[in-house]
Amino acid sequence: MGNIPAVTDAEFDTQVLKSDKPVLVDFWAEWCGPCRQVAPILDEINAAHGDKITFLKMNVDENPVTPASYRVTGIPTINVYQNGEVVKTIVGARPKAAILNELADYIA
Rank of each mutant, 00 (worst) to 15 (best):
M1S: 09
M1R: 06
G2K: 03
G2Q: 13
G2V: 14
N3A: 07
I4H: 09
I4S: 02
P5F: 02
P5S: 04
A6F: 08
A6G: 11
A6L: 14
V7G: 12
V7H: 11
V7N: 10
D9F: 01
E11A: 05
T14Q: 15
T14S: 15
Q15K: 15
K18R: 15
K18V: 01
K18D: 10
K18P: 00
S19K: 02
D20G: 06
D20Y: 00
D20I: 00
D20H: 11
K21R: 15
V23I: 05
V23A: 05
V25Q: 10
V25H: 09
D26A: 05
F27D: 00
F27E: 00
F27N: 01
W28H: 12
A29T: 10
A29L: 07
W31M: 11
W31Y: 08
C32Y: 13
C32F: 09
G33E: 14
G33P: 00
P34M: 00
P34F: 01
P34E: 00
Q37T: 14
V38Q: 10
P40V: 06
P40N: 04
P40I: 09
I41K: 01
I41N: 02
I45M: 11
I45P: 09
N46E: 15
D51H: 06
D51S: 12
I53P: 04
I53N: 05
F55W: 10
L56Q: 09
L56N: 11
K57N: 08
K57E: 03
K57G: 09
M58Y: 03
N59A: 11
V60P: 08
D61L: 05
D61K: 08
D61H: 06
V65Q: 14
V65A: 15
T66H: 00
T66E: 00
T66C: 01
P67S: 12
P67W: 00
Y70K: 03
R71I: 00
T73W: 04
T73H: 03
T73M: 13
T73S: 04
I75Q: 09
P76Q: 05
I78F: 05
Q82G: 04
N83C: 02
E85M: 06
V87N: 11
V87Q: 15
K88S: 10
T89A: 13
I90A: 01
V91H: 10
V91E: 10
V91I: 15
V91Y: 07
R94E: 06
P95L: 02
I99A: 10
L100C: 12
L100A: 13
E102R: 05
L103I: 08
L103Y: 13
L103A: 06
D105R: 12
D105A: 15
Y106S: 02
I107R: 14
I107P: 08
